[in-house]
């Protein structure tokens, strides 16, 4: 589904990604871990199409297409979803209105009929249950005054509404207490299927107790320095990142 080859990206003069290689197939869950500043969030942002980052080398192929040539909204309509680490607050735009526009643009792109108000509301109610989110919250301005947990639940709610092929969760666990974390993870797990893939970007192993990955990759100084199964995450949890760092420096 996604093939990243030798990807380099920078912001200004600062090189952040220095040759990433990664292959993600349908049905898989990949965890990207690594210490702060290793480039995890940059990778997520580059995949979603954020223009602050300049790709200087390498390629990203998504469902047979050159992802790097697509506009961010085109990527989303093609099935890529980024759950933001810091969801943006947008006064005056309600989640409901915004989601209605988004869902229908995605549906039209997929050759489906846009939803009328009634079917939209029905779909929304069904997806709200997944993350235990209140309709009153969704009628309010997008993320404005939401708690950390509400913002993250809203991200997963949007993911459920848009039914992406490839979801990228950027530090979705940050700022969540254990109950909120369980709700969010539970929502994500219900969306797992053999047709879609998920990339979980996280600093801690904690989230991976609930969203169990097939592969774990460790990012350090802009490169993937180690890959393994879910047991690699546990190893990192008990030993910290230092041994990875020294291994990487030696190599």
């Amino acid at each position: 589904m996604l093939t990243i080859r030798n990807l380099y990206a920078r912001v200004g003069d600062k090189e952040i990604l220095k040759g990433i290689d990664l292959e993600v197939k349908a049905g898989e869950v990949h965890a990207i871990m690594g210490p702060n500043g290793s480039g995890k969030s940059t990778l997520a942002a580059v995949l979603a199409g954020r223009e602050d980052f300049e790709v200087t080398d390498g390629s990203v192929e998504y469902l047979g297409k050159n992802l790097l040539e697509m506009e961010p909204d085109e990527r989303a309509r093609e099935g890529i979803f980024l759950a933001f680490q810091y969801p943006v607050e947008i006064p005056g735009v309600s989640t409901i209105n915004f989601m209605k526009t988004a869902v229908n643009q995605v549906r039209i792109h997929r050759g489906q009929e846009p939803l009328d108000a009634v079917s939209f509301l029905q779909l929304m109610k069904e997806k709200m249950k997944l993350v235990d989110i209140d309709q009153a919250l969704l009628s309010r301005s997008l993320n404005e005054g939401f708690s950390g947990g509400e913002k993250k639940r809203n991200e997963i709610f949007q993911m459920a509404m848009l039914e992406p092929r490839l979801a990228i969760l950027d530090e979705t666990d940050s700022g969540l207490d254990i109950d909120a974390l369980k709700i969010v993870a539970n929502g994500v797990n219900k969306l797992r299927s053999k047709d879609n893939a998920i990339i979980v970007v996280t600093h801690y192993q904690r989230l991976l107790n609930y969203i169990v990955p097939d592969f774990v990759h460790v990012l350090y100084k802009g490169r993937i320095v180690k890959s393994g199964g879910k047991e690699l995450a546990l190893e990192l949890e008990s030993k910290g990142y230092d041994w990875i760092k020294s291994e990487a420096e030696v190599a």
Partner: peptide, 15 residues
């Protein structure tokens, strides 16, 4: 707000 614009576009809404 460029961040807000990106957020909406990242959900599939054209620019």
């Amino acid at each position: 707000d460029e961040d807000a614009l990106f957020y909406l576009r990242a959900r599939g809404i054209d620019k």
